[in-house]
């Protein structure tokens, strides 16, 4: 009888065979607090050791006013690790008029899969005009949107997300951190159960107040629950071991780690090509 994922994890095996996709990664260091050098090479080294096949990345600068430099860094990473690094185009709601140029520059590259927005870092509400302009473009050009969410945040809380995401039913939205706080996760679950275009990722420390089996059980469609690590704010192994060691059936773990994200990618084709 084949070993379970838990048994294999206890034996410290690598999981290359699962075709794991990490839906939520950053890249590079951050001035706010210290951690070791976190470029694309050490990230891919950790990913290789654990058997994570693909990582979805936005470079650190992408969540700041230097977002265009961030997009260049993301492109370099995708080119350095083709087929293993998938990029997000970072966009700035305060400069929404630049968004179309950025999408036209990066979307034709097969290494890019969607858009990452961080309303908290950009200090712009998730339902503001700038983001609506960006979502109009995503609706036209395809891909999906990874959104940083945190319930205590006046820019990225779940209510604001729900207000705007209901207006774009064709765009798959991934709520990064699934709302963040205890209350945020509850709201994110309700939103995901109400709108079929809402996905949740399971990284972010307050999320861990909810056990992963509980999240999977309460989602009416658990195929919209995704593995993300939030690397390098969190170690890539932290989010991954949370899934590997969870008290869940292996079929559910395989979904969270791989097939749910595969389906998201299939569901989100880009309509801007070379």
């Amino acid at each position: 009888m084949a070993q379970t994922i838990l048994e294999r994890a206890k034996n410290r095996e690598s999981f290359e065979d699962l075709d794991i996709i990490d839906i939520h990664c950053h890249m590079g260091n951050y001035s706010g607090f210290e951690f070791p050098d976190a470029g694309i090479d050490p990230m891919m080294e950790d990913a290789r050791k654990m058997g994570v096949r693909r990582v979805c990345v936005v470079a650190q600068a992408g969540t700041s006013n230097a977002y265009r430099a961030g997009n260049i860094n993301t492109l370099r990473a995708a080119e350095r690790y083709p087929d293993r690094v998938l990029g997000y185009v970072a966009l700035n709601p305060h400069m929404a008029w630049e968004a179309e140029d950025e999408l036209r520059t990066y979307y034709p590259n097969d290494g890019f899969v969607g858009v990452k927005i961080h309303p908290g870092a950009m200090q712009a509400k998730a339902n503001c005009k700038g983001y609506r302009k960006i979502f109009d473009l995503v609706q036209a050009y395809g891909g999906y949107v990874l959104v940083h969410t945190w319930e205590d945040c006046p820019y990225s809380n779940v209510d604001l997300c729900g207000d705007v995401m209901k207006d774009y039913p064709e765009i798959p939205f991934v709520l990064g951190h699934a709302g963040g706080t205890v209350e945020g996760v509850k709201k994110a679950l309700r939103l995901a159960n109400r709108l079929p275009n809402i996905y949740l990722d399971c990284c972010g420390f307050d999320v861990t107040e909810h056990s992963l089996p509980e999240l999977a059980e309460r989602m009416q469609d658990p195929s919209r629950l995704l593995y993300g690590s939030d690397y390098p704010f969190h170690d890539l192994r932290y989010g991954l071991t949370r899934v590997l060691f969870a008290d869940l059936d292996d079929s559910v773990k395989r979904g969270i780690l791989s097939s749910n994200a595969e389906e998201l990618l299939r569901r989100s084709p880009k309509r801007l090509k070379h």
Binding site: A9, K10, R12, K49, M50, T208, E209, S211, L212, D235, R237, Y238, G239, L240, T241, R242, L244, F245, A246, D247
Partner: peptide, 17 residues
């Protein structure tokens, strides 16, 4: 535990470099 899920920290040490 049980505020956080213990398995992840078991795994973090088992897989530590």
């Amino acid at each position: 535990m049980p505020y956080l899920e213990p398995g992840t920290f078991v795994g973090r040490i088992l897989y530590a470099d």
